[in-house]
Write a protein that binds this DNA or RNA. Structure first.
Length: 799
DNA sequence: GATTTTACGTA
DNA sequence: CGTACGTAAAATCT
């Protein structure tokens, strides 16, 4: 007989099913009494469910050896159960049939598998399913409490799922309103529907294009007028063309007219906008609302795919399983409509409407930059590539001659063998986040540099050289189109990735929150090294502008440091930034350098007496402090002892007590309200554990303020000027202009005008200064001073 | 062939 | 206890 442990009242409406016993459960012979049990109780309480009112059980009422559920499966994918597990599943079935709860919540993958046969919890989490184990039984999958312990920010998602379970527990039925869907391949019907939307329908419409065949042809066009009514129009059937050229023209014309007149809603529509513009020459005139952008503003720490958002905002069936399903696109547009209505309200509730508006305004500039690309000087490129390749060969030969054998120097494993086994150098380990983590052997640059310092073995130098050069080479070995590279700017930080079968989906792994743009490979024009925000200095020399033009770079000076100075009210620093505002670069460097200033207060000397060493100490210590770093970092950077680093740290903290006070204030604010607000009113709700997020929280306000400042300025430049922007680099913007002194000065004046925006801390208003560089090549820019209006005009008169 | 890990470039 | 991001190549899994 198997143990059968089911806790709670037999007539309960909700049943929770976990995986198996842990140590504590085994001892107590009760489900969920250990750490996962404590978490479960918290999550239930947060959702308003009383633990004593529900049934709680596990698929397996015993503790697997080493807590590895795998031993109950015959295969590594965990789909073929052993005989024992089959008996347990049968027992679960009988338990459900006997108690007949209105809803069963599957906690984690194993319970989900046992109840429904589904294996991917991330996909179906939050969606009501029908059990395959007990016919007609309503199941809601969510994450296991133990998973929540490791991924604390996901607790918010589980609480929402529990709330859904509570709502659904009043009835055993799965009830969805039936949508009205036109599945069409007749051009006439589509054209009529477009006309109806354009002339009669009053609300915004949702648009979604499916582009799953190769190339960038649109396969399906979806349009929704509400969360319950839509059309899904087939343009292509696989490789087969469905309509005559004349019919296609009618279709695209009708769509174009609709997109000229109607407010349009999309989910991550930046991609669709780019495709329509690039391949069909169609501009979406009134891009009214993007659900992906709204989700980024409202829930910066959560995923933003339509599947996830629908599971949180809506009560709809799961539809993301099969992309080939004819209803797939229809559900996409219908649910985008539902999510739109939900998030539209959230923006007001959370007072984030203005943040949403300035993020929406960034979409067109980002699309423009992506489609426009950046010019490559092919001669420079091949020249540099050849030089780098020669150097690589040299470094390689040096290493091989010393070692007496040939290995792949970019292989961490092979390098470990040579350095730590053959040469018997002291093994280097990766730095760990905590002492509990297992030490990992490494051969990264930091380890090699440290070995070079201690052993002075010159082969290490050559290995470092080789690694550096091959990395550089990867930035030069690039494909271009009409001598241009293209990058996709992601204003919400999440990249779209092209998966197998050509499907474009949101990358669920990464979701930024700070308002900075990220840059990744363009799916529309996949040329160049993808990310344009991490091109090394040397490789930038291959990027240029057309004949007769030049590049003007404008960047914010010490932007984050200025923001921090005002926030913490560091009177001396503020005074210095005030005085240096508008000064020439030479004066600024001489009289108003932040790091020299820091060193002068640390070492109690005047600014003139600061030595280069003192400045380096000042710079390192301030840097570490601004980002919540400690003495260990400082010691490593400066190559000094830990006690020395500690005393440096203490010195700066003593002379600038506001800094530490601010750190503490941030920590307590995150603890009490979990919400931080930057100087533009952008809010960030922190969901993770306090200890994990405190450093990120410290950098949020300065970093996101500068990001918003830059992007608002960039939009202003796009909307109000004739300047041609070519690049965005977090706190710098690059434009191309005619290569004449007047045009360069005019460009600089306009940039300065649009980049100079007041920031406010309390009642105090301040500005962040801008400085300029100019040059023909991105990697070869020289500082240039903004001439006063007087000088500028004088010169114009002379000409 | 697909997925995960290691390493490394930028602000 | 730097943070944030994206990509290439190697290592590992299936």
């Amino acid at each position: 007989m198997l143990p059968n442990i089911l806790e709670g009242p037999q007539d309960a409406r909700i049943m929770l099913v976990g995986e198996a016993f842990g140590k504590e459960e085994e001892y107590a012979q009760k489900p969920f009494v250990g750490t996962a049990g404590k978490t479960l109780s918290k999550l239930l309480a947060a959702a308003g469910i009383s633990r004593s009112s529900i049934l709680i059980t596990n698929v397996v009422s015993e503790k697997p050896p080493k807590n590895d559920i795998g031993i109950f499966f015959k295969d590594s994918k965990h789909v073929v159960p052993t005989e024992k597990l089959s008996l347990y599943v049968k027992q679960l079935k009988e338990n459900i049939e006997r108690t007949r709860p209105n809803i069963v919540v599957a906690l984690g993958r194993t319970a989900l598998w046992a109840l429904t046969g589904e294996t991917n919890i991330t996909n179906v989490r939050g969606y009501l399913l029908e059990s395959t184990l007990v016919r007609g039984q309503k199941v809601l999958p969510t994450f296991h409490p133990q998973y929540v312990n490791y991924n604390w920010k996901d607790h918010a998602v589980v609480v929402m799922d529990f709330k859904k379970a509570l709502r659904e527990s009043s009835s055993p039925k799965i009830h969805y309103p039936r949508p009205s869907v036109l599945l069409e391949s007749r051009p006439g019907v589509f054209v009529d529907y477009c006309k109806y939307l354009q002339h009669e329908h009053k609300e915004p419409a949702v648009l979604d294009l499916e582009t799953f065949t190769n190339g960038m042809h649109v396969d399906v066009i979806g349009l929704a007028e509400s969360e319950s009514k839509c059309i899904s129009f087939k343009v292509l059937e696989g490789e087969r063309v469905l309509h005559s050229p004349q019919e296609e023209v009618r279709v695209w014309t009708a769509l174009e007219q609709l997109l000229q007149a109607k407010p349009i809603v999309m989910q991550n529509g930046k991609f669709d906008v780019g495709i329509l513009l690039h391949h069909n020459g169609i501009l979406v005139h009134n891009y009214h609302f993007d659900t992906h952008v709204a989700a980024h503003v409202c829930f910066p720490e959560l995923p933003r795919s339509l599947g996830f958002l629908s599971s949180i905002c809506l009560n709809v069936p799961y539809w993301k399983g099969d992309h080939k399903d004819p209803m797939y696109n229809a559900f996409d547009v219908l649910n985008t409509y539902g999510v739109y209505k939900f998030l539209d309200k959230c923006l007001d509730d959370m007072q984030q409407r203005h943040v949403f508006q300035y993020e929406m305004a960034q979409i067109y500039p980002a699309v423009y930059l992506e489609l426009n690309g950046l010019l490559v000087d092919q001669d420079k490129r091949s020249e540099l590539l050849a030089t780098v390749e020669t150097k690589i060969t040299d470094a390689e030969e040096t290493v091989y001659n010393t070692l007496g054998k040939r290995i792949n120097l970019n292989s961490p494993l092979q390098l470990q063998g040579v350095l730590y086994v053959d040469l018997k150098l002291p093994t280097q380990y990766k730095r760990r986040k905590s002492v509990e983590e297992v030490r990992k052997v490494t051969t990264d640059a930091e380890a090699l540099n440290s070995l070079l310092r201690t052993t002075k073995n010159p082969v290490l130098h050559s290995i470092l050289e080789y690694k550096k050069l091959t990395k550089l080479k990867s930035f030069l070995n690039i494909e271009t189109r009409e001598n241009r590279v293209h990058t996709c700017y992601n204003i919400t930080g999440a990249t779209s990735i092209r998966k197998k079968k050509g499907l474009v989906v949101d990358d669920e792994e990464s979701y930024s929150a700070f308002g900075r743009w990220s840059s990744s490979a363009s799916i529309i024009l996949p040329y160049g090294s993808g990310n344009l925000q991490n091109i090394p200095e040397e490789a930038r020399t291959i990027y240029t502008v057309p004949e007769g033009f030049t590049i003007v770079q404008a960047d914010y000076i010490q932007a984050e440091a200025v923001v921090v100075a005002y926030i913490i009210g560091d009177v001396r620093l503020i005074q210095m930034f005030r005085e240096s505002y508008g000064c020439s670069a030479a004066v600024r460097k001489h009289k108003y350098d932040v790091h020299t200033f820091t060193a002068s207060i640390m070492f109690h000397v005047s600014m003139d007496e600061v030595t280069p060493f003192m400045r380096k100490v000042g710079k390192t210590v301030r840097h570490a402090l601004n980002y919540g770093g400690g003495a260990g970092v400082i010691a490593r950077r400066l190559g000094c002892s830990l006690p020395e680093a500690k005393s440096y740290l203490a010195t700066l903290l003593a002379s600038c007590p506001q800094l530490l006070r601010w750190h503490k204030q941030i920590a307590s604010q995150v603890q009490s309200t979990r919400v931080l607000t930057n100087l533009f009113g952008r809010k960030h709700k922190y969901l993770g554990r306090l200890t994990d997020i405190v450093r990120s929280a410290i950098s949020f306000i300065p970093q996101s303020t500068v990001a918003d400042l830059m992007n608002i300025s960039l939009c202003s430049i796009f909307e109000n000027t004739d300047l041609e922007v070519i690049l965005q680099l977090h706190d710098a913007v690059y434009v191309q202009c005619l290569d004449t002194p007047d045009e360069v000065q005019r460009t600089m004046h306009i940039l300065k005008q649009h980049m100079t925006r007041p920031l406010r801390v309390g009642k105090e208003e301040f500005f962040i200064d801008v400085d300029f560089k100019v040059g023909k090549y991105w990697g070869d820019m020289a500082p240039i001073e903004l001439e006063s209006r007087g000088e500028h005009e004088q010169r114009q008169e002379l000409q």
